[in-house]
């Protein structure tokens, strides 16, 4: 299955998560008008979501996202977890 979901962060930015899944998440693509430092960490954030089971808990996703050495600007780990879970619905 392939799906995507968009989250509008209140007073912030727009995040779109595209992903494929079977029993686990694969091929994540994170796009939008957010900021990220360093910019190269976008790929690390995608990798943190890949391999997670499709019934993953929100809290587990947040922990995996926060473990990435990246400064999220205009959104936070919770928003990215929200978009990911919505794409799995």
């Amino acid at each position: 299955m392939h799906n995507s979901a968009t989250v509008n962060v209140p007073d912030g930015k727009l995040l779109e998560v595209g992903l494929s899944y079977d029993d686990r998440i694969t091929d994540v693509r994170l796009t939008g008008d957010f900021f990220l430092e360093p910019p190269e960490s976008r790929r690390a954030l995608e990798a943190a979501l890949e391999g997670q089971p499709v019934d993953v808990a929100h809290e587990t996703l947040v922990e995996a996202i926060e473990a990435v050495d990246a400064r999220l600007i205009g959104f936070d780990a919770g928003h990215l977890a929200d978009a990911t879970l919505e794409a799995l619905e």
Partner: peptide, 9 residues
Amino acid sequence: LGRFQAYAD
């Protein structure tokens, strides 16, 4: 285009 935006979007 913003660095993280999808061209076709």
